[in-house]
Design a protein around this nucleic acid. Sequence first.
RNA 1: GCCCGGGUGGCGGAACGGUAGACGCGGCGGACUCAAAAUUCGCUUCUGGUGACAGAGUGGGGGUUCGAAUCCCCCCCCGGGUACCA
Length: 882
Amino acid sequence: MDDRYDPQQIEPRWQQVWADERTWEVSNSALQDADADPVYVLEMLPYPSGEPHVGHLKNYAIGDAVAHFKRRHGKTVLHPMGFDSFGLPAENNAIKTGEHPRDATEKSIKSFQRQFREWGVSIDWSREIASHRPEYYRWTQWLFLQFFKNGLVERRSAAVNWDPVDETVLANEQVIDGRGERSGALVEIRQLEQWFLRITDYAQRLLDDLDTIDWPEHVKTMQRNWIGRSAGAEVRFRCDELDTEYEVFTTRPDTLFGATFFVMAPEHPDVMKLVEGTDREDEVRAYVQKALTADRTERGAADKPKTGVALGREVVNPVNGERLPMYVADYVLIDYGTGAIMAVPGHDQRDFDFAQAYGLPVKRVIVGANDDAPDDFASDANAWALSEEALPYVGDGPLVNSHADFDGTPNRDALAAITAWLNEQGKGEEAINFRLRDWLISRQRYWGCPIPIIHCDSCGMVPVPEDQLPVVLPEIEDYKPKGKSPLAAAEDWVNTTCPTCARPALRETDTLDTFVDSSWYFLRYTDAQNDQAAFDPAVANRWMPIDQYIGGVEHAILHLLYARFFCKALTDIGVLDVNEPFQALFTQGMITKDGAKMSKSKGNTVAPREIVDKFGADTARTYALFLGPPDQDADWSDEGVEGVYRFLSRLWRLSAEAAEQMVHAAPISEGASAGSSAPHPAGATTPDGCEGDDLELIRKAHWAIDKVTGDMGRRFAFNTAVAAVMELTNAISARRNALVGNGASSRAAEATDEGGTFVNDQVVANLEGWAAIRFALATANSLLQPFAPHLTADAYERLTGCRVWEQAWPAAEQQYLERDEFELVVQVQGKVRDRVTVSASASREELEALAMGREKIQPFLEGKTVVKVIVVPGKLVNVVVR
RNA sequence: GCCCGGGUGGCGGAACGGUAGACGCGGCGGACUCAAAAUUCGCUUCUGGUGACAGAGUGGGGGUUCGAAUCCCCCCCCGGGUACCA
């Protein structure tokens, strides 16, 4: 028998077993069994580009560990895989090289599939999907049409990055310092007709239902902040000159009386209307043009000097009739609120900065805590000692300089009162505003899902009839046509007839945002073969929600929010009954190399392929989980990989050796038929009657069961779980060395052949030791199986004759966890001064007395008075002196 | 800018408010070997001391507590997201 750990030999053998037996496939009919306990474990699907990287390895190592752990707790686990195969990188590659995005993508998918198999990930491949295949995107289109028919789709104009040289729309990512990454041309902002999904209709529910799901708190916080609910009022400001009213959203109606000017966002559609034909027109036009092309993230910077231009118009403050000058300024955002604000420089930092820069009046309407209050301030507001240097004041306080009805009222109370008053007067009303914007789903790109709409001159926008789906993505010559969406070049495809009136009509040439594809793929997995529907609601509802979703924290907002929205909307439409798709979420951290994000340009990438070739998949997977807490970023180290390889080698060698020992011991110890080489079938149960070092080893094994079970089940602490199995393996190795000496191998088999009785006597003498070792090894392999499925299957079979993945997860027995002694720490002033082994049953009083009597602490008590003694049973005694 | 994370030995990291540094890497020393590799055993936060031991120590500053890496406040640095990368 080969005593060398050889993953290249072990791993393919077990992968073959799982493939032949379709071990990881689950059928939907199995769900009809009342005893079925279905669990859905899912990692975010990969975008197939090139080969998988170590980030993928980590993601699927985590997910696979969870899937195995659940299976071994008796669950029926759905664990599928697919590919998010539409997207920009493949299209960019096509523009550069002429290679069809489909070819590059399919090639990449093949590589991903092969490597996932080589990693031994327990995937149900019968449910595989790829979003670029017509049999998938047919249903993406169908879902779009359901949204369309239910009024959740809108078409309206929106700003895009426009590259005037390439004549194409750019993704934000393609805009570098305001220039197109390919052309280098200054990017313009253009307004184009776009498709939207009305996710804002769901803002409140998306916010509220976060309370019902088991997600990391910081991810929920990010989503809450992204949705950005704020309560306030909408107030109408009249512009007499143009005979229009402008609505403003404010969270601070209490400061309405302090407004001294009015500001519009550069994108506001009325800005140019307001200055048309006036002497302001040129200056305003120049400012707007500049603001529109400026870098979006820089624009919001608080420390950036405020800029703007006067419009030469005024609006009337509805609460006091004051005339406020109008400005356009880029610190006002078109996407938030109404794109126009009332400016209250006395109580808002940004308004204050702007007022300072443009010499505008600053008015105080709330009294600060440090201002001196007159006794009767309501009747004599001017008696206030107003400290102008303290402005802007953003805190709370009583109102002043406002209105007789409100002066003196604490501003928080005045908020509601003023809102009610506005409502009475018809000048405004209570309003909730969300930061969340509608989801822009159309893209002027080739490599995406065609939008199934036909534009007809007579009938308008007509949905493609469902029985004509899919609208197949046409073949085109040039992936970068000038000025239009690339699909517009496929004239035979674009020119069609209207499904309603049969007259000539044109197909929509935009494609869908790839986030649409990935917002429902987890539903398709539940019923992936269905060619009559996107999914059977009964099947999807049975599997959903996903019990454990796992993916990168970089998706914490967009993907997760869109998928949540999809499920709610589809549930409202009536094709699904899933309020929240991801009941539990785990977000993994990034793997870096030498402290930096891996990238091809830096040349610091690590390909899993090389690791797997050199050390095997078990090592690669285990290391990916061992290198740190999986939810945090971690740095990859090649030396660390070797450490894990050494650990796995040792575990496997010890297992192989112990299995051999038992084969020879069996006829003698078990009374089994002579010459039988059948492995001990009960190797996984705790041997009885062990004492001394053997008992200690058994205790260690049960400690490891307890530790690994807790680390995996409660907190996803795979790194410490692996460490626990390492500790157990170290203990096994030490016990084994005590039995047979430190030689590389005991060569029991050879010895038996040569030595006859003497060796057998030795084996008998060591029988109890080997039983303990074998149990500990079976336990170590069993605990490590979710991380290293191949070698543990191999070793466990040798040790017990059983398939480890079919075994129930081991249970720690309390009697082996409890100790009758512990090490008491003795502290003085919180500093450790002594340790002593004491009985676990010692009372508080006994612990205190014992501690106080310790010789080592006496010098620290000398000349001091003992003020207090803290006793923490099972842990420590802390003596507090003065 | 805004939102969310993170910062602990030479390195990756461990530590329900209760022994800082588990486990692994690296380093040093020993065993085995003609030798090397592999394996195996021991030591390894820093400073002082032969040593027992003492002092310091979890990005910086303050606070709460008998006791803080952990909780609170302020600051610095690094990472993710920021709506057309996925």
